[in-house]
């Protein structure tokens, strides 16, 4: 029973992890940017939802789509005016510029939001219900469902809509995309905007089940990076599976080895995956 409960917790948390990695995988696959500021953008999205809730009085789940719009705009502008300078350039350049961005965002967050812990605490935060003898925390279940819904929405966008087709086309053949009516700077900005909006949603959900501080970005970037590699860049659902895998592994580690090791486990998994499947392709399709 304990094991089943631990597995359930891991799965629910893992869905959220998958959502965290979704935007990073999209941006990586299409723009070839490993965005080291991705976790900082998650953090920012968390604060947007936090303030919409505490100051605006908006229910955090209702605030999520608003935060996603705000974060889309943030991402669009960042890509259009800054990151387009390094898109498809050497990996080192993109790492340097997004690392710099991470530092700047973290510092600005500390100035603006202070270093205090914040939690998004709606009245139903502690609610849970019993199912087959297990305790299901309502907010975590809702976060899991939101993650699945957003992954499905991203899949639908990429595979069934003209914009998504243009995004995939540009990732596959830039020369042809330009000849066929795609303006790459705008398309990249839209893609990064979508990735940032997804990060924002993840941040809002994260803030409901854990503490927000300006410093959570780095470890969330690392976790997203590991999950993007495990799940690959080609299919949003694989990324969610990757997240669930890591979520379960973390929960089991906490149970059997000790909670202090649960943060280490994702990198352990990364090493295992890279050893077992060294030429795993990271191309998007």
């Amino acid at each position: 029973m304990v094991l089943a409960q631990i597995l359930l917790n891991g799965i629910l948390l893992g869905g959220l992890y998958g959502l965290m990695a979704l935007g990073m995988a999209l941006v990586w696959g299409v723009l070839n940017i490993v965005n080291l500021s991705h976790g900082a953008l998650i953090m920012l999205g968390g604060y947007v939802v936090y303030y919409l809730f505490t100051i605006g009085g908006i229910d955090p789940f209702v605030a999520l789509p608003i935060a996603m719009l705000v974060m889309f705009a943030v991402g669009f502008l960042l890509q259009y005016y800054l990151l387009n300078l390094v898109v498809r350039s050497k990996m080192l350049n993109t790492l340097l510029i997004t690392f710099g961005l991470d530092v700047v965002l973290t510092y600005l967050a500390q100035l603006t939001f202070s270093a205090d812990f914040r939690t998004i605490n709606p009245p139903y935060a502690g609610a849970n219900f019993a199912l087959f003898g297990l305790t299901v925390p309502s907010v975590r279940l809702a976060a899991f469902v939101v993650a699945i819904v957003l992954a499905a929405a991203l899949w639908f966008l990429l595979h069934r809509m003209a914009l998504g087709r243009a995004i995939r086309a540009t990732a596959q053949n830039l020369v042809a995309a330009r000849l066929y009516g795609v303006n790459p700077s705008v398309l990249y900005a839209v893609t990064f905007g979508i990735g940032t909006a997804l990060a924002g949603a993840a941040g809002g959900l994260y803030g409901m089940i854990a503490n927000l501080t300006p410093y959570i970005g780095a470890s969330l970037t690392a976790k997203s990076f590991v999950i993007a590699i495990i799940g690959g860049l080609s299919n949003p659902f694989y990324v969610i599976f990757g997240g669930i895998f890591v979520g379960i592994a973390e929960s089991l580690t906490a149970l059997y080895i000790g909670p202090t090791y649960s943060d280490v486990i994702s990198f352990g998994l990364l090493v295992v995956v890279l050893v077992l499947r060294p030429n795993r392709t990271l191309r998007t399709s």
Binding site: A162, R165, A166, R168, A176, A177, R283
Partner: peptide, 15 residues
């Protein structure tokens, strides 16, 4: 310069 991981139909839709 086709979009190699897309179907023929999707390539045509890009046109």
């Amino acid at each position: 310069q086709l979009f190699g991981h897309m179907t023929v139909e999707e390539n045509m839709m890009m046109g």
